[in-house]
């Protein structure tokens, strides 16, 4: 038995990290297909503003972060309907959220120490409450995705004909974005913004590149994400480097490997 698992904090890092990776990488496949790979990053920064507001108003910061990111997700959807491109909408809200957080933090006279864990949440310091939250809310999110799976799939690939065949595309899109918002906020507290955005973007990009079907892409994305968590945590433990950084390195390596593999597959 590896001595790495004798520590409760390492067990929780593996459990929490892999759960967050599964959740984010699944949502990621839907988002990357819609060219919204940066959506997670954007939402995470907006919820940073939400966390700061929560700390300032002395309400539970995760709740205000969730409210902020759900509102932002819906706003992005509305802005898109107003013919503002998705990436521009994300860029605008991204800067706004971050700036709001910084302004609120400086106005309050400082709660830096309380804010940092939300921004850089550490995979080595996952609490039991975090773990429980990600199991419950993450499970619900995945269940919701599964129950609307067919319609979401249709709408993701071909919005026009989905709309023509009577699928409520707008409502489905809104649902997807709200689920993504929940996923981002929840995972951010557990693993931090850096990991959330890479869990959303990288495994899905690799998986979509290598897979022949959507189901296959979902599975590949989940496998890449969780394997990278495991590899990164092992490297972090045995080489004494930052765990979050090592996980993203593992994801980037997987991406590079997929480029090579892809070349051989598609001449």
């Amino acid at each position: 038995m590896l001595d790495i698992f004798q520590y409760a904090f390492m067990q929780k890092a593996f459990a929490g990290g892999i759960l967050a990776a599964l959740l984010c990488s699944t949502i990621g496949v839907f988002l990357v297909l819609r060219r919204m790979a940066l959506f997670g990053d954007g939402l995470a920064h907006i919820s940073f503003g939400g966390v700061a507001a929560g700390l300032l108003l002395k309400i539970y910061p995760l709740a205000s972060a969730l409210a902020f990111s759900v509102i932002a997700a819906i706003s992005i959807q509305k802005l898109k309907q107003m013919k503002i491109r998705g990436d521009s909408a994300i860029a605008v809200l991204f800067s706004f959220g971050l700036a709001l957080g910084v302004v609120l933090a400086s106005a309050s006279g400082g709660f830096g120490a309380d804010l940092m864990p939300y921004l850089f949440g550490s995979i080595l310091a996952i609490s039991d409450a975090d773990l429980l939250a990600i199991i419950l809310i993450g499970g619900t999110t995945l269940a919701a995705l599964a129950s609307f799976y067919r319609q979401l799939l249709y709408a993701s690939f071909d919005e026009e004909s989905a709309r023509a065949s009577g699928i409520p595309v707008e409502r489905l899109n809104a649902l997807l974005l709200v689920l993504a918002a929940i996923t981002v906020v929840l995972s951010m507290k557990v693993v931090g913004i850096l990991l959330v955005s890479s869990f959303i973007a990288i495994p899905a990009t690799i998986a979509i590149r290598l897979s022949k079907s959507f189901t296959q892409a979902l599975a590949a994305s989940a496998i890449v994400a969780s394997a990278s968590v495991a590899a990164g945590l092992l490297a972090a433990y045995y080489f004494g480097v930052s765990a979050g950084g090592a996980i993203v390195m593992a994801l980037a390596l997987a991406f590079a490997a997929s480029l090579l593999a892809g070349k051989e597959g598609n001449p």
């Binding site: 520590y7 120490a113 550490s122 080595l124 945590l233 972090a236 433990y237």
Partner: peptide
């Protein structure tokens, strides 16, 4: 500094 974060191996070492 209060901004320093321990690595996994450092945490294990302290335990």
């Amino acid at each position: 500094s209060h901004a320093d974060e321990p690595s996994a191996s450092k945490l294990a070492e302290i335990v």
